[in-house]
């Protein structure tokens, strides 16, 4: 009887998990399906999941509107800010573990505290400052803000990791004839890959997916990010759902692929952080 109950429980669990997966993935798959249907099939009743005559016309439509430039802008801002944030944050995380730094505790509190300040509440004063400094509506505005948001996370994730690397490892490299920089590059960085990847993936998701910073700090059409361009497109062609869903697909594909490839590091980074407090 106990055995039977366990089997029923197992079946219920699998069924519930399957249902949850459908609720979670269904809308995304539906968007993909819509983006591949021609206009006269989009509103078909009853709805069909598999497009009858798949077409790329909506994607072509987006290209005709120049959305690919916004895609490239997003990619540029993301890559620049993530590279900068991981380099600067990782360096700081390393120094906080290995070097005597004045006011170390205060700096840790600073990085930790900044992580819990909602960046959204700072956008308005930042906008005013950027206008006065002439950074508003330039290519610099978004990389600076994205990097500044990601740096504390990068510090935190890499610091926790560097602390677990035995000091002797780099001491051995120093004795073996390498400079401090070479020792870090050849011995510490290879071991720190998980933390660096977690920080970089987190930064990518943050920067690529942002809308509110981009829409408030950049105005020129040729500086727009992909999410901003999609919202503008919606404003002009609100009923062109095929093209809008093509935009959703384009905007979603990079972060989902990245997430699937690096999920281990991302999940690991966040679960370690929470368990260690």
């Amino acid at each position: 009887m106990n055995q039977g109950m366990r089997l029923t429980g197992r079946a219920a669990l699998l069924a519930a998990s399957a249902l949850a997966s459908v609720v979670v993935l269904g809308p995304i798959i539906w968007a993909l399906s819509t983006s591949l249907k021609s206009d006269n099939h989009i509103f078909a009743v009853p709805p069909r999941l598999i497009p009858d005559e798949p077409t790329l016309m909506h994607f072509q439509r987006l290209v005709a509107e120049g959305v690919q430039w916004s895609f490239l802008n997003s990619a540029f801002y993301t890559v620049v800010s993530v590279a900068f944030a991981v380099a600067v944050g990782g360096t700081a995380g390393y120094a906080l573990v290995r070097y005597p730094v004045p006011a170390k505790r205060a700096l840790l509190v600073l990085f930790m505290g900044v992580m819990s300040i909602p960046s959204y509440a700072l956008l308005l004063p930042t906008q005013v400052i950027f206008v006065r400094l002439g950074i508003f509506d330039t290519r610099l505005a978004l990389p600076i803000l994205y990097a500044a948001h990601v740096i504390p996370f990068a510090v935190w994730m890499t610091r926790a990791h560097f602390a677990t690397v035995p000091r002797e490892l780099e001491q051995a490299a120093l004795v073996d004839g390498y400079s401090r920089f070479e020792a870090v590059w050849k011995v510490i960085i290879p071991g720190a890959r998980p933390a660096l990847i977690a920080a970089a993936a987190f930064g990518f998701l943050y920067a690529w997916n942002d809308y509110i910073t981009a829409t408030t700090m950049v105005e020129s059409p040729d500086l727009r990010t992909l999410p901003v361009a999609l919202i503008f497109f919606q404003g002009f062609h609100g009923r062109d759902w095929g093209a809008l869903m093509a935009g959703v697909v384009i905007a979603t594909l990079p972060p989902i692929v990245l997430f699937l490839v690096y999920r281990r590091y991302l999940i690991g980074g966040f679960s370690e952080g929470s368990v260690k407090g």
């Binding site: 001491q171 051995a172 120093l174 390498y178 400079s179």
Partner: peptide
Amino acid sequence: VPPADRDIAMVFQSYALYPH
């Protein structure tokens, strides 16, 4: 003088082998 310029070799208690 930095360790690298001393031409010494060291064996550590933990061996400090490079895991990668």
